[in-house]
Design a protein around this nucleic acid. Structure first.
Lengths: 340, 340
DNA sequence: GTTTAGCACTAGGGATAGAAGAGTGCCAAA
DNA sequence: TTTGGCACTCTTCTATCCCTAGTGCTAAAC
């Protein structure tokens, strides 16, 4: 069990290191933070905190740096969650604009989050492939092209344009679409891929000459629902953090940011906060990275999340407060809608 | 006028520097490329080429580096355009798949381009805001939400979901959409914003209670057409180039890559190739960058382009050949369609 | 006249050494 | 239990030196 003095010292070191990114020495705690102990006392306490695993040294005669365990303890027991009123107000103007879709709100929240934290944030919109097919509509463009518009029950839209030619008539297309509307409406998008293969394809093959072409085109359009709902804000913020002033690390970060699939995998499945410190278990390929995520339920089977990515020394209290607040507010919007 | 020997030396230096990114010395040209002259002769020639402005030195006793003028000369007079047959074949499988839309082809070509060149490529799809409105369709999702789907004559789709509530009835929305279909169909998207304000808004105001809300929502959806058609491939490739092994430069590059508007501005307006060497006139904020772009006409008023971005020392012959070939092939697809 | 061998010269890169500075650990006194 | 003091450690910065790759120029060779 830590004494009060040890707690204060640990907390101050974590706070200071979040700002300076430099190992913290005993003298600084007195000069800058006015701790009412001598530097020798602080050094003794720091030695104890190190022995207990909360602090580390970068070399024998350096100042102290919080360990992963130190951060974990800070996050679990030491930090205070609090969002400033001005920030709340700023955010409310985003949330209470009812014209906006979930995805739009998620995108705007990410932008604000990375602005407020000077870090990188990722928003994962609800996974559209868990939504179900609402309707496929054909809109003729010219006398030789038609676009098929696929809408889910949550209003996610994909489309695919077809050229009308001797091999593929408008009638064929109409038949195909009404067949699919009959068989597939109400079915979750991720199950449609199988159903398309098993149920639609045989019928199509019997009725339409260019069934392969049609079939593949629709397959492709349905597959697209699964992608394209990862939004990043402030990617470059991460590159201004002093711990990544090394080109090799920067490359790794950029590479990780380009890999949307990775972030879809990192989407926390359970509702609520998830605080990954030092990215110990997940394979980001970057060191010294922490990820604060919070997910929200947007329907029976769908959920989204917002995350902030930053160096391990990030200001957890601020970041966690913001992410939690925003995620809760987004959740509220959905809960309200359900009740209505 | 340059002698044949000077041309050979200039070309060899440019080729070698493209590979090594290190200043090229007289000895190397003999050892690696077997030029049949002594190093002294080559040094004399290099001194002349430097005086003429085709070469530069990084310091008094360094090897030579091609100057911007040297590259310009190389591109205009020295390089041979040639695409290998295997590459052509690989690309044909992309082009002759008629199920694909322009945007899909552009995206695939970018992916292939950055793969083949190990550089970064950008594709700009046709600017949807020059296309004209084909139709707005309403698709009901639940009893309290409807999505409006806006389609252009080229098959570009945007949508906007509305919540039905006591203030905004389905009827209102229906009225609004049929009004817009009457007044705006056939009108170019970029003119619609004005028309919406001048013609639609007054009528809407008279008929519908929540006209402001509706109006703004549609405005927003129309604005979206202008964005979101910039596609990057291989962003991280650029970071592996030795000239950008400095963090400050890497940051600039990443920042420039994040700025989609910038790339939309860089879209070459005229048809055909555009070779920017050393990025002299445009404001990318990065040094030592060249951009090879080629645009293609996709309709009366719309065009797209593909570009490759790389260090100034890039292999112009290879990159220009590829970009030109791909751009021409994309153009062919459109020309064919017009004839059909 | 052109080409080449040879040599003096230059600037950058890497290694080494020393000095400065920031911090620790620990002992002995308060 | 706390603190002043001091020896010790490690990093970082700077200066210096050497080595090397490359040049320019001159004089000799072709």
């Amino acid at each position: 069990m830590l004494t009060d003095r040890q707690l204060v010292i640990l907390k101050t070191i974590i706070d200071e290191f979040a700002i300076s990114a430099e190992p913290v020495g005993s003298k600084l705690l007195i000069e800058k933070y006015g701790l009412p102990y001598s530097s020798a006392t602080i050094r003794n306490e720091m030695a104890i905190l190190e022995e207990l695993g909360y602090l580390e040294k970068t070399h024998t005669s350096s100042g102290r740096v919080p360990s992963l365990m130190g951060y974990r303890f800070y996050v679990d027991s030491l930090m205070e969650i609090n969002v400033e009123d001005e920030v709340k107000q700023q955010l409310q103007t985003v949330f209470y604009d009812r014209r906006k879709s979930v995805n739009e709100i998620v995108v705007e929240c990410c932008d604000i989050l990375s602005e407020l934290t000077s870090l990188t944030s990722v928003g994962l919109g609800p996974d559209a492939s868990r939504e179900s097919l609402q309707r496929i509509t054909l809109v003729p463009l010219t006398h030789k092209s038609v676009t098929a518009i696929i809408v889910t029950d949550k209003g996610h839209v994909e489309n695919k344009t077809f050229a009308i030619n001797p091999e593929l008539s408008l009638e064929d297309l109409n038949n195909c679409v009404s067949l699919m509307n009959d068989l597939l409406v109400g079915c979750p998008i991720n199950e449609i891929l199988d159903k398309l293969e098993d149920e639609v394809k045989p019928i199509l093959a019997a009725r339409i000459r260019q069934h392969e072409l049609l079939f593949n085109a629709f397959m492709e359009a349905f597959v697209r629902f699964a992608g394209s709902n990862v939004h990043f804000s402030g990617k470059e913020n991460m590159l201004y953090q002093p711990e990544y002033s090394d080109v090799v690390k920067v490359r790794k970060i950029v590479k990780a940011f380009e890999n949307n699939d990775l972030w879809r995998q990192l989407n926390p499945v359970d509702q609520g906060m998830m605080i990954r410190i030092g990215d110990s278990d997940y394979e980001l390929g970057i060191e010294d990275v922490s990820i604060i995520s919070s997910s929200f339920k947007t329907g029976d089977h769908t959920h989204g999340s917002i995350s902030v990515i930053g160096p391990t020394r990030m200001q957890y209290n601020r970041v966690v407060s913001l992410v939690e607040y925003i995620s809760n507010e987004i959740q509220k919007i959905f809960d309200d809608e359900e009740v209505e």
